[in-house]
Design a protein around this nucleic acid. Structure first.
Lengths: 183, 183
DNA sequence: ACAGCCATGTAACTCGTTACATGATTAC
DNA sequence: GTAATCATGTAACGAGTTACATGGCTGT
């Protein structure tokens, strides 16, 4: 239970996964992160999930408990009252950082003068494909959430993501056309 | 001129800024990054710009030259043939990473059950405002690029960004409406 | 038997940030 | 004169990754 110390957003993100009620193991936290956080935050490495949970526990924001199943022991974490309060306080702070987009396709397109339009088009076509796969993943996630009121906000966010992928596909498709119809 | 060693994308991004022909100082590279890379990659810290340029110089991908002006000496870098070739090779590699979005607003909205709809709406309204400011910045950047053929790709990318901001504004506005019309 | 998943962690390392330190030039 | 901008770097640190190490359980 160490002192108030500003935590990185990823800590709050993982803490947030525990705020829906279930007790989760590090492994399960990773899976949830993989299926939700990945789309608009990050997919932390397995090792980071464990160290982050350790830190949250030190701060008294989560509580770990060794659950002895048949043979194998699993360490599961639940959010504490302090954790829920701390998370809530963070959520209510005004968002000071504008979203950061690390878009390697846009970055490479920027330097298209070095590769030519054909290479740029090929890259964008691949990107449209990747976008389709991503969208399919998110559709599955959205379906998994269902329409339960508990997950109303995650559902909204998933729909936001879907709308974003749709728009991105359209924008890139237009871009592709504008690169094709060059003299 | 050290050995072939995989460089992080940010190195290539900065190298890319030098691929448009001009000789730039670290300070100027930072300014270009601030006005273009920021929107779809990152805005590296000043200190990173200098250390990155140092590394690129060690690898022989850029060449630095002390330019003695009136009094103050400025160190300017230009891309070398090796640098241009290396950059081109990197550009032609297939993009393996899907864009990463670090979206604090989406992250916080996901946890809306802890704060309620009113707080969520307020956050989204602020975000729409911030989006407007960002868009205005990018409009200025697009205007600065002009219609010169040298910067045709940067212009395309800027327009992509503008379309993205427009779509994001619309999506969030819809989201906001769906949060308001709750019983 | 073997593959694949469940499960937890440590160590070494890189990327990138903030804080620190310094100083010249320009515009008001 | 003084504030803003131009200009360059070093040091300490934190976030997050990959590689390494270990082992149980499940289905074929």
């Amino acid at each position: 239970m160490s002192q108030e110390r500003e935590l990185p957003a990823t800590s709050y993100a993982l803490l947030g996964l525990l705020s829906f009620g279930q007790e989760l193991s590090g492994y399960e936290v990773k899976q949830w992160a993989e299926s939700t956080l990945r789309f608009y935050w990050v997919a932390p490495a397995m090792s980071q999930v464990y160290s982050e949970l350790g830190r949250l526990a030190e701060h008294g924001l989560v509580a770990g408990r060794d659950e002895a199943g048949a043979g194998r022991t699993v360490r599961r974490y639940r959010i504490t009252d302090a954790g829920r309060e701390r998370l809530r306080a963070w959520l209510l702070e005004p968002v000071d950082d504008f979203p950061v987009l690390k878009h390697p396709v846009a970055l490479k397109l920027l330097l298209g003068h070095l590769t030519g339009a054909a290479a740029a088009r090929e890259m964008l076509e691949r990107y449209v494909d990747a976008l389709g796969e991503r969208r399919a993943d998110l559709v599955a996630v959205r379906a998994g959430i269902g329409d339960d009121a508990t997950f109303a906000y995650p559902a909204k966010v998933a729909e936001w993501g879907l709308a974003y992928y749709d728009s991105e596909r359209e924008i890139v498709t237009r871009l592709l056309r504008s690169l094709s119809t060059r003299p």
